[in-house]
């Protein structure tokens, strides 16, 4: 398996204006599909406010489209959950995540992470396929850096167990 691109070849982080203008229409379309046009407007703003909060934690400008759409997916999940907080199971994000980006980095791990719960899968993908910091992942998932770290390591532990079931008690 190939390694993720080293930092020296990573894309520069553009001014937020360019990131926003490049991805706003697609983010809105995704949210309108998931939530309807009225709720999509609030979710659109929440998505880019989260992105703004997370922007200083970005370490490179690779995969920003996937990053934006991942945040939007999380915001949509939160919006769908809100009326019955804690009642619904975590909706499956696998279709959404796979559709996010055609970058090789994601495809390389998609088959490995397909069995993870959604939050762990998003955390593992953002950490290892997109090389984001825990700060950026936490902000993308609407949680804290610590929670992002925990979701990532619990996802990795689950993957290890799946890969080598006999070694685990």
């Amino acid at each position: 398996m190939e390694h993720a691109a080293p930092a020296a070849t990573s894309a520069a982080i553009p001014p937020f204006e360019r990131f926003y203008a490049a991805h706003a229409p697609e983010v809105y379309r995704l949210l309108a599909r998931r939530l309807g046009t009225q709720a999509a407007e609030d979710a659109f703003q929440e998505t880019f406010l989260r992105a703004l909060r997370a922007y200083p934690a970005l370490r490179h400008g690779d995969h920003l489209r996937a990053w934006a759409l991942t945040i939007a997916s999380r915001v949509a999940v939160d919006a769908l959950r809100r009326p019955v907080a804690g009642e619904l199971p975590d909706p499956d994000l696998s279709g959404e995540l796979i559709a996010l980006d055609e970058e090789p980095a994601y495809r390389q791990v998609a088959h490995l992470t397909a069995g993870l719960p959604p939050t762990e899968r998003a955390a593992v993908v953002l950490r290892y396929a997109y090389d984001l910091s825990y700060d950026a992942i936490g902000l993308a998932l609407g949680s804290s850096p610590d929670a992002a770290r925990q979701a990532t390591s619990s996802g990795v532990r689950r993957l290890r167990r799946a890969a080598a079931p006999k070694e685990n008690a």
Binding site: F16, E17, A21, A22, A24, P25, Y28, T37, E41, F44, Q45, F48, L49, L52, R53
Partner: peptide, 29 residues
């Protein structure tokens, strides 16, 4: 940015104002 014309009317401007009001910008231009 012509791409932003694809958004519902007023949404782009509302987001920009909200981002500024939340003091999340390094600078407005």
């Amino acid at each position: 940015s012509p791409a932003l014309d694809l958004l519902p009317p007023g949404l782009d401007e509302r987001f920009r104002e909200r981002a500024a009001a939340a003091s999340l910008l390094d600078a407005a231009w």
